[in-house]
Amino acid sequence: MQNRRKTGVYGWALAKAGFIVAGPNHPGTTSGDSTPADTPKLWERTHDLSAVIDRLTTDPHWSGAIDKDRIGVVGFSLGGAAAMEITGARANLEAYARYCDSYKKWDCAWYAGRRGYVDDKPVEVDKVDLRKVDRVRFEQSNLDRRIKSAVLVDPGLAQAYDAQSLNEIAIPMNFINLGSGGTIPAAVIASGLAALSPNGSYATIAGADHFSFLPECKQGAAALLKSFGEVDPICDDGNGRSRADVHSELIKLVREALWRSLKERS
């Protein structure tokens, strides 16, 4: 969520052989095209995800390779928030607004305005009043019952979710935080979410931070990003552990979670 240019990643495990399909871009909340005003509109993201599943499960070139009873979703950051909602989690607007009344970092700092991105260029933007977000849409159910398993890595809007909605999610919800102990920001901490989910699990990856999910940076990338005005430490994991090593552990956790939960349905 804090990263303005990489606002969420998804994948699906939805084939008989277990292949992964990358998620779509979302205008207004995707790399190079992201504004604070569009960020809370998770209903647009879940609609996009369901539309992709619609297409793949009916397209003659793909449908034969897809087991409709074994569709899983993997989401990171804002993508993790959308993945939560498509599994049945519902957000509470007032609870989220109250959280940002006192928390001034990460997602809440983003809503404070000043900068967004359009067509890969920074633009000046106004502050977002969360209480003026479309409450009906923000709090609606975006459940797609075709999803049978979810892996949620540093899910965004972690402070917004209604506890009862999480209590009602029957599928496996595998939460992963990048970091450990007090290093995990309130914006994405998922231990409480896992505890509320009847089939929830929780894991952390020590020596990592939120940006460790992103690809390894090439030489000179940090300086280049700084020259563009990027303020987030996208290339700095800062914990003495290589990003490749973090990726290896994360891939193992995601693979095991999907294999365990989706294989059991075969």
Rank of each mutant, 00 (worst) to 15 (best):
T7Q: 07
W12Q: 02
L14Q: 08
I20P: 02
S31W: 01
D38L: 11
P40I: 13
P40F: 03
K41D: 03
K41P: 00
L42D: 14
W43M: 14
T46A: 05
H47K: 15
H47D: 15
D48E: 05
L49S: 04
D54V: 09
L56E: 05
T57E: 01
D59M: 07
G64V: 12
D69H: 14
I71E: 05
G72L: 03
V74Q: 02
G75Y: 10
G79P: 01
A82I: 14
A83L: 09
R90L: 11
A91E: 01
E94D: 12
A97K: 03
A97V: 05
R98M: 00
S102A: 15
K105N: 11
A109C: 06
A109W: 00
W110Q: 13
A112M: 07
G113A: 13
R114L: 14
G116Y: 08
V118T: 06
D119Y: 07
D120G: 02
E124G: 07
L130I: 02
R131H: 04
E139Q: 07
N142K: 04
D144A: 04
R146S: 10
R146E: 08
I147V: 05
S149H: 10
A150Q: 04
V151N: 00
P155S: 05
A160F: 03
A163D: 00
Q164T: 11
S165P: 08
L166T: 11
N167Y: 10
E168V: 15
I169S: 04
A170N: 15
F175M: 14
S180N: 12
G181V: 14
T183Y: 12
T183W: 12
I184R: 08
I184P: 09
L196H: 04
S197I: 15
P198M: 12
A203R: 15
A203V: 14
A208N: 09
D209L: 10
F211K: 03
S212Q: 00
F213W: 11
L214N: 04
P215V: 14
C217N: 01
S227A: 10
V231F: 02
D232V: 13
D236Y: 04
D236F: 08
D237W: 03
D237K: 07
G238C: 12
G240A: 13
R241V: 15
R243K: 06
R243V: 11
A244K: 13
D245F: 10
D245G: 01
L250Y: 07
L250H: 01
L253M: 15
L253T: 13
L262D: 01
